[in-house]
């Protein structure tokens, strides 16, 4: 955005002007350069962040294609605000937050139409290793958790964030993060066995 430098009286604005076409060309070129630079920055960021975001999204939804869509939605939303955010300190955290919002939105949209066809079987200790055919994967077990608890587990134990960061990303208190991560781990332990989810 081009701005005039100072607030001054109308009479003060009598500085000489360069020829119109040259100045217009300069303004347009500067604007195009700025846009191109922002696009380059965004593309570089998106290419580096997309695999990580997609893995996180996959852990949240168990579906690579949906994870790809969610990643694309998150990146598109970041693109819209890119000129405002691209100089912020923590684009990584911002991208995680946008992704989680996309996951929550998607979950909310589909919650009325999804039908649960089967429950993940409850497993006893040691059962997981005993029968590979019936083995419950961590991703399946994660899917049994409410979406916010799933986000807490993924951000806390996969993304390796502190309790405070997770609370900040999800907009909840640290107490909620601690309580829900403890409950979620307990639930995962029940499903996968204590060997797979150590205390």
């Amino acid at each position: 955005m081009t701005t005039t430098p100072d607030v001054s009286a109308p009479a003060d604005r009598s500085a000489g002007a360069a020829p119109g076409p040259r100045r217009r060309a300069g303004w347009l070129r500067a604007r195009q350069d700025e846009r191109a630079a922002a696009d380059r920055e965004f593309t570089a960021f998106a290419e580096s962040a997309a695999p990580r975001l997609r893995r996180t999204a996959f852990l949240m939804c168990r579906d690579w294609h949906l994870a790809q869509d969610l990643t694309q939605i998150a990146l598109a939303k970041m693109y819209v605000s890119w000129r405002r955010i691209w100089r912020t300190a923590n684009l990584e955290a911002y991208s995680r937050r946008v992704l989680m919002n996309a996951v929550f939105d998607q979950k909310r949209r589909r919650s009325d139409t999804e039908v649960v066809l089967a429950e993940v079987p409850e497993r006893g200790p040691g059962a997981a290793a005993a029968d590979p055919e019936l083995r419950v994967t961590l991703v399946d077990a994660l899917a049994t958790l409410p979406v916010r608890d799933r986000a807490i587990v993924v951000l806390r134990y996969w993304e390796d964030h502190s309790v405070e960061t997770v609370a900040d990303l999800l907009g909840v208190s640290t107490a909620v993060v601690k309580t829900q991560s403890s409950r979620s781990l307990s639930r995962l332990r029940d499903l996968l066995g204590p060997d797979l989810v150590p205390r």
Binding site: T2, T4, S14, W27
Partner: peptide, 8 residues
């Protein structure tokens, strides 16, 4: 002349 910073 008065607003050289704006697109002409």
């Amino acid at each position: 002349e008065q607003f050289p910073g704006l697109p002409p």
